[in-house]
């Protein structure tokens, strides 16, 4: 099948590539663009390890066609840190021991990154529901919840200091 040209913003940079219509976004990211931080776990949209941010929303990149990413903005874990350093979500996962084998972690953090914009000050219950599209086999989730709470607190403090500055 003839390949199609797609062009999208990936972690702040414009990328152009050719893809088969059936190519899944996760394969384009990993194989074609060599960003292997986004993982593949179930391929049926249940586990969430392939979660990336697309046009400001969390999506499971195993169930999005690459052609559907044309003209969108995509952020992966590789784009989470910026020139100032690690994102608060990344720091909080280390601080609260919110990861073990690391396999779900990238998708988990990408979801947390977006979730905390949707709900900057969540309760534990809201975190459980808001993060329920991401599976983890190692942590029993408890420390991930703490990590999301810590990140929420630190992000709010950072915002406050920006506001008062």
């Amino acid at each position: 099948m003839a390949k199609q040209h797609i062009s999208f913003n990936l972690n702040g940079k414009q990328v152009d590539t050719l893809v088969e219509p059936r190519e899944l976004l996760v394969h384009t990211l990993r194989e074609n663009l060599n960003l292997t931080g986004t993982h593949i776990g179930c391929e049926s949209s249940h586990c969430g390890v392939c979660t990336v941010d697309m046009n400001g929303q969390s999506v499971k990149s195993c169930t999005v066609l690459a052609v559907q990413a044309d003209k969108t903005e995509v952020k992966t874990v590789e784009g989470l840190a910026d020139a100032d350093g690690l994102h608060e979500v990344q720091k909080a996962f280390v601080e609260e021991h919110g990861l073990q084998c690391g396999f779900c972690t990238t998708g988990m953090m990408m979801r947390a990154y977006r979730f905390l914009q949707e709900n900057p000050n969540p309760t534990e219950e809201e975190i459980r529901w808001g993060m329920s599209g991401n599976l983890c086999r190692c942590t029993g989730y408890q420390n991930i919840i703490k990590a999301v709470q810590t990140a929420a607190k630190n992000l709010q403090n950072a915002n406050k200091s920006v506001e008062t500055a």
Binding site: S45, S58, V59, R111, M131, G133
Partner: peptide, 9 residues
């Protein structure tokens, strides 16, 4: 319905 990511699509 489903989960947050699936509800986004």
């Amino acid at each position: 319905v489903a989960d947050p990511q699936v509800r986004n699509r």
